[in-house]
Simulated assay, not measured.
Amino acid sequence: MELRIFTEPQQGASYDDLLAVARTAEAAGYDAFFRSDHYLKMGDGDGLPGPTDAWITLAGLARDTSSIRLGTLMTAATFRHPGPLAISVAQVDRMSGGRVEFGLGAGWYEEEHTAYGLPFPSTGERFDRYAEQLEVITGLWRTPVGETYSFQGEHYRLTDSPALPKPAGRIPVLIGGTGPKRTPALAAKYADEFNLPFVDADKAVEQFGRVEAACAAIGRDPAEITRSAALVVCVGRDDAEVARRAAAIGREVDELRENGLAGTPAEVVDRLGTWRERTGITRAYLQVLDLADLDHVEFIAAEVAPALRG
């Protein structure tokens, strides 16, 4: 099983904070560094120094790291128009030497839209726009050099776009979420990976089953889609260290054991093994909430990751 680091910078992180985590993760051998795409903190805390833009951050990391893969869980379709977003992501991919992965979601956090003057349509319209964005962005990327791309949708219209720049290579597309109908259908059509964030294994089994059914409906092999999950992580050498790390992120150990990955390395390896057996995931995004605790990142790489390889 691959382990990836997943951060939530809107809770309070500078670019330098994120760079330190990304470089630590790279040196420790993690497969990828991902971040959320939010403009407003959630819950307690002041969120200082304030939000950092996901793709500006990843552009910096593209130059300040050398091997770790980079991506978003998930870029919000409500934040950007698809044409400029396709340009930004392709440029960051080239800046990184082809290390970008592109997670796109419909957007859900209404308060951040209100706070920064962004329209927040109904759920139905957000998914309509999301579907069109997936078609436009992937269409722009796959248009051969020298040809043009046009699209006439309800929300977006492109005419004779040169469809440039091109990514360094084919950018994997990540789709995720628990929507019962449209989400699995979009995953079957566009996704290289389907991610389930912060759900239990029972719900994951149900949703992966829906994605399989959606693939069957269009004649796609569901094995082409990587299965992954995002889970908050809190690992320690002993119960005292687990408790200290849980307190640092304002969580209870028992709650983290039930809803995330908490405990000693052996406990976390066992829980991830159960996830793999029950759901078929081959990739886990470890949500690291205390970005100053770089020892945590290194400790998991040294004590958890080796038991999950092979």
Rank of each mutant, 00 (worst) to 15 (best):
F79H: 11
D31K: 07
A77T: 07
D31L: 08
A90G: 04
G47D: 05
A77Y: 12
A90T: 02
A62K: 09
S66Y: 08
A54K: 05
S96Q: 05
G45P: 08
L73N: 09
E101S: 14
E101C: 10
K41Y: 10
I87C: 07
H81Y: 11
A76H: 09
A54G: 09
V100Q: 04
S36K: 06
L48Y: 10
T52N: 14
V92W: 02
V100L: 15
P51D: 13
R80A: 04
P82T: 06
G45H: 07
L61Y: 12
S67D: 12
H81Q: 07
P82S: 07
G43N: 08
G47A: 03
I87R: 11
W55D: 00
G83L: 09
R63L: 01
R35L: 15
L48F: 07
R99S: 05
G60R: 06
T57Y: 06
L73Q: 05
V92E: 00
F79S: 00
G43I: 04
D64S: 00
M95C: 07
D31H: 13
G43L: 09
G60T: 01
R69Q: 13
T78H: 07
T65W: 04
D93A: 07
R63A: 00
P51W: 15
W55M: 01
F102D: 00
L58E: 03
I56Q: 10
D64Y: 01
T65F: 08
P51F: 15
I56Y: 10
G98A: 14
L73A: 10
A32C: 08
L85R: 00
L73M: 14
P84S: 01
W55G: 00
V92G: 00
G47Q: 03
R63M: 00
L61K: 04
G97M: 14
F102C: 02
H38N: 11
S96N: 06
S36E: 11
D44N: 10
H81A: 09
M74Q: 01
G60Y: 11
R63P: 00
D64N: 01
V89K: 03
G60M: 04
A32I: 06
E101F: 15
G47N: 02
G60W: 13
P82Q: 09
W55V: 00
R69T: 06
M42H: 11
T72P: 05
S36C: 11
V89F: 12
K41Q: 09
T72R: 01
V100W: 05
L70S: 02
T52L: 15
S36Y: 12
A59W: 11
V89G: 05
L58S: 06
M95Y: 12
M95P: 02
I68N: 03
R80Q: 08
V100K: 03
P49F: 15
T72K: 03
R35M: 15
L61S: 05
A59P: 03
I68C: 05
G83Q: 05
L40A: 15
S66G: 14
S88G: 03
I56M: 13
G71Y: 12
S36P: 02
S36F: 14
P82N: 08
